[in-house]
């Protein structure tokens, strides 16, 4: 254990320069994630929450400019060369994406894709070892009959199972940090709960830190202990989950919370975050 938080983000700004001019989609973002902590980043579409995760991974598209500091375990990531960053991706920081079907390559078996990270980060791994790692990872995400299903292709899995495969993919390397970008958005409500339970379970078992990015406050409330609220690239509010939910400081957070229908509410129009949207 070191004195550093697992992830320390300071003054993170991501901008694009196009023919139309320069726009910052993430502005001076700062937060800490303690070892084993779970942080929820909440915001509407366009709030810059996904860009934040991609910026941490160092996977920003061409033309994007990233400034500020991102420290993983005290090690500055923004100054690393691409090759050094590759060693961190998948190994120390792993990512789960929104749409599990399009995020899996249709041409390879799930086993191949789960084991791929393991094989590229560890040297001298035999095919059999990698396969066993894949089966083990699939068992950990509760995919039944993993020894057989490891040779199946993504299209042979249901949506929820595919997302389990995506999560299994992150597990093979035992990362310190898992970033889940809208991991439940593309799934049925019943399946969403299962995936969230799974993420919580993995966090408990492996002690990995978790960043959960979502527009869904219900999702965040279940998993995160720290919350960052973002709007149009700005950090609006941050604090413990309890504090943000029970005693929101920013008007915007309050509006977000009010926009969620509650079972004990009077029947009426749902509130939106901006009046013009009506």
């Amino acid at each position: 254990m070191t004195g550093h938080p697992l992830l320390r983000v300071r003054d993170l700004t991501v901008g694009f320069t196009t023919a139309a001019g320069h726009t910052d989609v993430v502005k001076h973002l700062a937060f800490d994630l303690p070892r084993g902590g779970a942080l929820g980043i909440v915001g509407e579409s366009g709030s810059g929450k996904s860009m934040t995760s991609i910026a941490i991974m160092g996977l920003l598209p061409k033309g994007a400019k990233r400034t500020g500091s991102i420290e993983l375990d005290g090690r500055e990531l923004t100054t690393l060369r691409e090759r050094e960053m590759q060693a961190i991706r998948g190994d120390r920081i792993a990512m789960v994406f929104q749409d599990p079907l399009s995020s899996l390559n249709p041409y390879y078996t799930v086993g191949t894709q789960i084991a791929e990270a393991y094989r590229s980060h560890r040297t001298g791994v035999t095919r059999r070892e990698a396969r066993n790692v894949a089966i083990e990872a699939m068992e950990r995400v509760h995919i039944r009959d993993a020894a057989r299903r490891v040779d199946h292709y993504p299209h042979q899995f249901s949506g929820g199972m595919r997302q389990r495969v995506m999560i299994a993919m992150t597990l093979s390397m035992e990362p310190d940090l898992i970033i889940a970008d809208e991991p439940t958005t593309a799934l049925d409500v019943t399946v969403q709960a299962q995936i969230l339970d799974l993420l919580a379970e993995i966090r408990r078992d492996t002690g990995a830190g978790l960043i959960l990015i979502t527009h869904d406050l219900a999702v965040v409330s279940e998993v995160a202990d720290q919350i960052v609220v973002m709007r149009e690239g700005d950090l609006v509010e941050q604090g413990t989950a309890e504090r943000v939910f029970c005693d929101p400081q920013a008007d915007y957070t309050r509006m977000l919370l009010d926009a969620v229908p509650r079972i004990d509410d009077e029947i009426g129009l749902l509130r939106t975050t901006s009046e013009e949207d009506r």
Partner: peptide
């Protein structure tokens, strides 16, 4: 542009491998 290419990069595969395989 496919999402699975992004996944491959997020796994830390080398650019050559991402290209050839994915």
């Amino acid at each position: 542009q496919e999402n699975y290419v992004r996944t491959a990069r997020a796994k830390g595969l080398s650019p050559g491998l991402v290209w050839r395989r994915h």
